[in-house]
Structures are given as structure tokens and as C-alpha cells.
Design a protein around this nucleic acid. Structure first.
Lengths: 166, 166
DNA sequence: TATTGTTATACTCTATAACTATA
DNA sequence: TATAGTTATAGAGTATAACAATA
């Protein structure tokens, strides 16, 4: 596929190691904060946050799953958990009876509000406190470029379901 | 603690979202590749890779745990799994009979060799293919700075074990 | 027949606390 | 008494495949 060398340069290796270390540590702390303050897993927080930003606080299961990248059954599990806690509701879509519309509740928004300041605090202290304005700019530019590239070139494994012709 | 504003600027938010998206997608793909090719979890790969780089292919459990950041029991579990597959050996340290020395075997190195090319391939195609030389440089500089900061200011929760005076 | 979502199931991983053994 | 590591246990999360219902 690629015509580029199969090795990483020392600089690339260093960048990769540092990147994974930072993302692991940050993720670990963020998960701990979400669990301690809001009893939320990372995925649950992600789902709530997406719903909080969505118009009407609602999204279809499939659209949510696309954003979170996980399996449908995994999302069903998390949505059930959130529904049992009263943080979301689920209802069949009026437009397409196959679809399920998930909607964040006031209680769900309250949990988001509980969790947000500490979440921001972790991100600030772990990521941005050691960066100056220029660093933030270049980091934003570089990460946005990569994420755009990943969105437009989804890895082969991202196929939602195996097709018959595989 | 911090005197900085409790909010993130739009640029910081954008950087954070892109960063987490990239790291999630990359991690997901890397885990899939490791599982498919080497039947390794991410942590298992990390342990093997560290041992592969260590002098003599050996490290103490505690030193390994420090690198992986997880709980001791979690590392014991992974080390057991690796030992059952013959990828590492475990033996008490001659110097300190309390310690366990973990050593990578030839079979372990073989699995690492199996897994490496694809691992590099995922990292290259997902991360570095969309970056030019300058981007790699700044990414390396920024991430190295952050990781150094995190190492020297370990988050409060990183205390290995609760002390009596807590 | 294709799509949406749930269920059943089995497995992996993680953490806490209690425990053993050595320093 | 403190440290290194293991064990027991329990819970959370994930994925695959089979299934039901709707388009």
C-alpha cells in the first residue's frame, strides 16, 4: 500500500512513544475523575457529552455508535446503564420505527455539569499547563490535520458490519 | 492549585478533542492489530516491548508496573498469561528474594518480531502519513515536553500504595 | 433482502483487599 | 514494620453471533 519506508525514524519513534504515554496517562486520569465524581465510564461520558451538544439532546443509536466507534451491542449496554440511572431515555423514532432515539435527561445534564469542571481541570493540568500559546496552536493544527485524515480515510477495519462480498 | 482560568479556550478545546479522537482511533487500531497478529493485549505488548529493550531482557515486577502505571495485581495477571504462553519466565531475584524477575524468552521475542511490522504500519498510516517533517518535529517536541512534565509532576492518584498518613 | 437494534453469551481486563514471605 | 508480589473475588466492559422487527 504505502511507498514509505517500513521503519520509523528516531524522531518519529520518539514522537510516537511520547504521544502514547501522554494519551495513556491522560486517559487514565480522566477515567478516574469521571468515575469518582460522576460514576461514569469514559464511553458513558462521551455519549452524554454528544447528546448534550446535539439538537434537542437526542441522537439515533447508530449515529452515536459512529461517533464512539464501538460495537452496537456495546453501545446498547452503555445506553441501558445510562437509562437505568435516569440519565437518558430511549424511544423508537417516529420516522423510522427501527431506530431508537436516545435523549439526555435533566438528570443527565446535571451529571455532566457535575463532572465538567474536574474534567477540564485534569486536561488543563496534565496537558495544557506545560504548553505555551504557540505549542497549543501547533498541537491543534497537527491533531486536527490527523483527525481529518483519519475521518476521510477510515481504516479498513472500520467497516460497520461485514458485508456478504468480503 | 492552578491560577489559570477554569475554562479551556476554543483553541484548547479543539486541540483536546482532536487529540483524544486521534489517540482513541489509533489505540483501537493498534489493539486490533496486536490481537489479530500476536494475540496480545496492549498491556502485554507493552510489557514484552519493555523487556525486549531491557538489559538481559529482564525487569522486576515493580519496575514493570511503574512503566505501565497499572495495579500490581493487574500486572501479575498479565505476567501469568504471558508465562503460560511461554513468552516470559518469572523467577525470584537472587538479590532480594521478595522480588520477581520477569524475563522475555526467545518465543517472546519472536512474537514481538511478528507483531512489529504491522504495528509500525498502523502507526505510520494513521499518524505520520498525514504529517510532514516539520509537523513531526513539533509534535515530538510538544509531546516530549508534556510527558516530561507528567513524569516530574505525577498526578496525586499515581501514588503506588496508600500510605498510613493519608 | 437490508437495516436497526437487542439479547445471549463468553471472555478479557481491572481493581481492592486479604494474604504470604522476605528485608 | 515495610516492601514485593500473589490470590481471591467481584464487577465492568467488549465483541460475536443469533435474533426480532421494520423498511
Amino acid at each position: 500500500m504505502s511507498t514509505r519506508p517500513p521503519q520509523l525514524s528516531p524522531l518519529e519513534l520518539s514522537a510516537y512513544f511520547a504521544f502514547t504515554e501522554v494519551s495513556s496517562l491522560l486517559r487514565h486520569e480522566v477515567e478516574k475523575q469521571l468515575r469518582d465524581v460522576g460514576k461514569l465510564s469514559y464511553v458513558q461520558f462521551h455519549v452524554l457529552a454528544r447528546l448534550g451538544d446535539a439538537p434537542g439532546g437526542s441522537q439515533r443509536m447508530t449515529d452515536l455508535a459512529d461517533g464512539v466507534v464501538y460495537s452496537r451491542s456495546g453501545l446498547t449496554y452503555q445506553a441501558q446503564t445510562l437509562e437505568e440511572r435516569g440519565l437518558v431515555t430511549r424511544a423508537p423514532s417516529p420516522e423510522d420505527e427501527r431506530s431508537t432515539i436516545v435523549t439526555i435527561t435533566d438528570a443527565g445534564r446535571a451529571v455532566l455539569a457535575d463532572v465538567f469542571p474536574g474534567h477540564i481541570g485534569v486536561v488543563r493540568s496534565m496537558l495544557f499547563d506545560s504548553l505555551d500559546a504557540t505549542d497549543v496552536e501547533v498541537l491543534e493544527r497537527v491533531m486536527t490535520r490527523v483527525s481529518g485524515h483519519l475521518r476521510s480515510n477510515p481504516p479498513r477495519s472500520a467497516a460497520p458490519r461485514r458485508r456478504k462480498s468480503d
